[in-house]
Amino acid sequence: MLNEADLTALAITLKLALVSTLILLVLGTPLAWWLARTRWRFKFIPEAIVALPLVLPPTVLGFYLLIALGPRGPVGGLLESLGAGPLAFTFSGLVIGSIIYSMPFVVQPLQDAFSAIGRRPMEVAATLRASPLDRFFTVALPLARPGFITASVLGFAHTIGEFGVVLMIGGNIPGETRVASIAIYDHVEGLEYAHAHWLSGALLLISFLLLLVVYGLNRRFRLVRL
């Protein structure tokens, strides 16, 4: 059975996935919109940066984040001088890491969805008196709904599966930064295979159900694009 520590780890995992996905949707929507609409000839540069976490070993990403967020890092140091604590080995640090790590899984489906809409519906809305912001909310967002479902589920599922980044910047603090994937690793290290089985099974089930939602609701979108 899942013991209390495992349940806590699972709860932290789900909370991390939820918070990261929500922030990613807020930040990723304008970025994806811009990528889908811009005619800037160098837009491949931000596209490559967004796609980077797909190929980079998570430990590499985690390592750089650890340096940046630590007390002597540029971000951590700045926060420290402002009176805030460092971000390394905190839940907030994990959220930042997850946002970067899961970025392509949210931005790419959104970008594809916005591109698929094309310019015409927005032009029609313009001739029907809708201001740019109005037509974004009343035309672009509703038409991109399948993309939002894909982005939300993939961002969420991918954050659940995170290991390397979390290990590097989160440490392994029970009740704070100890997520399910790390708990599993610990169980295996300690030869507690029964616990590892329960927790792994729970993650397998959650991930599979999430993907069923994506593939069941829309088959139009490729999941990941490199």
Partner: peptide
């Protein structure tokens, strides 16, 4: 365009599918 008092009919009807 959204402040011009005009109506526009495109080649394809381009109805809002949603």
């Amino acid at each position: 365009p959204h402040r011009r008092p005009l109506g526009y009919v495109f080649q394809e009807a381009s109805l809002f599918e949603h």
